[in-house]
Nucleic acid binder design. Structure first.
Ligand code: FES
Ligand code: FES
Lengths: 167, 167
DNA sequence: TTAATCAGTACTAGTTTGGTGCTATATAAA
DNA sequence: TTTATATAGCACCAAACTAGTACTGATTAA
C-alpha cells in the first residue's frame, strides 16, 4: 500500500539513533535496547545496511556498528534503497528503460516515471541528520500549511539552513 | 518496495482510458481490450473504483462504466486511495494520531508524516486529465533536468522554486 | 582461551497480491 | 416475455513477500 517495509522503518530508526549517539560505535544489542526494537530484526537490518556500505561494522568484543559517513551526507533514499532495492513506484517505472511489452501503448508510464523521480528526490533531499533531530518545526507542521511542504524540505537541504518556519 | 500494487496500476490505466475515450461509457470487456489488460482483473478493478464513487456503473445490456467526475477533477491520489486505502508510507504515519506504543520515544515519526504528506500532495496534484495526455513534455523529461521535476507538475498548482542541488 | 560480537544462511508462519470462478441482479432489445 | 448483455458480490486459490527465528561460523579485545 505504497508503504516502506517494517525493516526499512527499523533501518531509519537505527541509523537515526546512531546519528545522534555520543558513542562512535554501538553494538546491535545496545541499539535494539535503545530503540526498543526486537533484537533479531535489528541484527538482520544492521547487517544489510553494513553490506550496502552505509554502516561500518567491527567484529569481536567491543565491536559494533558505526555510520560510514557523516549523518548529513546520508539520505533517507539511500537507506530505503539499501533495504528494498531501487525505488520504483510501479513495476515499469525504473531508471533503466523498461522491458515492458505494453510500453508502446502505455500512456501513463512517463507520468509515473516523473512521479517516481519526485518521490526519489524527496527522499534524497532528507538527510539522516534531519531525520535524527527532534522536530523543532513541529509547530510549523501542525499549523495550516500555505506553502507546499516540499519547499520547506528542499529549501532546508539546499542551503543547509533550518527550515523557514523556525527561528 | 515502495510500490503501488498492480491493481492500482491497472486502475490508473483504465481511468485514463476512460478519460480520453470519445464514448461516455465503456464496458469492462471493451476497456480490457483497449488497454490490453487481463479481463478478470479489469472487472475486479472497475468494481472497486465504482464502489469508491470514482466511476458510475450502468448494468445490463449496453451498460458499462463512466467517470463520475470530469478527468481534471479526479486526482491520482484518489484512485490510489480507492484501491489501496489511505496513503501511509509507514505503519505509524497516518492522518489520525497513531496508536503506536513507541510514539513517545519515536524520533522519526513526525518526519515520516511530513514525507507522507509530500507524497500525498504530489499524487493529489496530478489529475487524471494530465495522466491521460501523452507527455507533450517528454522531450523536457529526457533532456538534462535543471529544474526539479516537481515544478513542472505543480507549476499550475503553485509557484515552486527549482532545487539547485539535484543534478 | 574466552567471551563478545558480527557474517551468513536457512527456515517458517502469516499476510498480501494477483488472479479465477460462480451466482445473482439489472437492463435494453427482440 | 424472453434473451443476450453486463455489472455486483462472493468465495476461492497459488505464488510472492514480510517479519521473524535459529543456528553455525568468523573475528577480535581482553
Ligand atoms: S504497463 Fe509497462 S510501461 Fe505501462
Ligand atoms: S515506531 Fe510507531 S511512531 Fe515510531
Amino acid at each position: 500500500m505504497l508503504r516502506i517495509t517494517r525493516e526499512t522503518d527499523y533501518g531509519i530508526i537505527l541509523m537515526s539513533a546512531l546519528a545522534q549517539a555520543d558513542e562512535a560505535s554501538l553494538s546491535a544489542a545496545l541499539l535494539a535496547r535503545r530503540c526498543r526494537l526486537p533484537v533479531p530484526m535489528v541484527g538482520k537490518t544492521l547487517k544489510a545496511l553494513a553490506q550496502a556500505g552505509l554502516l561500518i561494522s567491527q567484529r569481536g568484543a567491543h565491536g559494533g556498528y558505526a555510520l560510514a559517513r557523516h549523518p548529513a551526507e546520508i539520505t533517507v533514499a539511500e537507506v530505503v534503497e539499501a533495504l528494498e532495492g531501487p525505488i520504483a513506484i510501479t513495476e515499469c517505472s525504473s531508471a533503466e528503460p523498461s522491458g515492458c511489452v505494453f510500453l508502446e501503448h502505455c500512456q501513463v508510464n512517463s507520468h509515473w516515471n516523473r512521479i517516481n523521480e519526485i518521490i526519489r528526490s524527496t527522499l534524497g533531499a532528507i538527510s539522516l541528520k534531519q531525520m535524527s533531530q527532534w522536530p523543532s518545526s513541529l509547530r510549523g507542521a501542525d499549523s495550516p500549511v500555505t506553502i507546499n511542504p516540499l519547499s520547506a524540505l528542499l529549501g532546508e537541504h539546499s542551503s543547509v539552513q533550518p527550515d523557514p518556519t523556525r527561528r
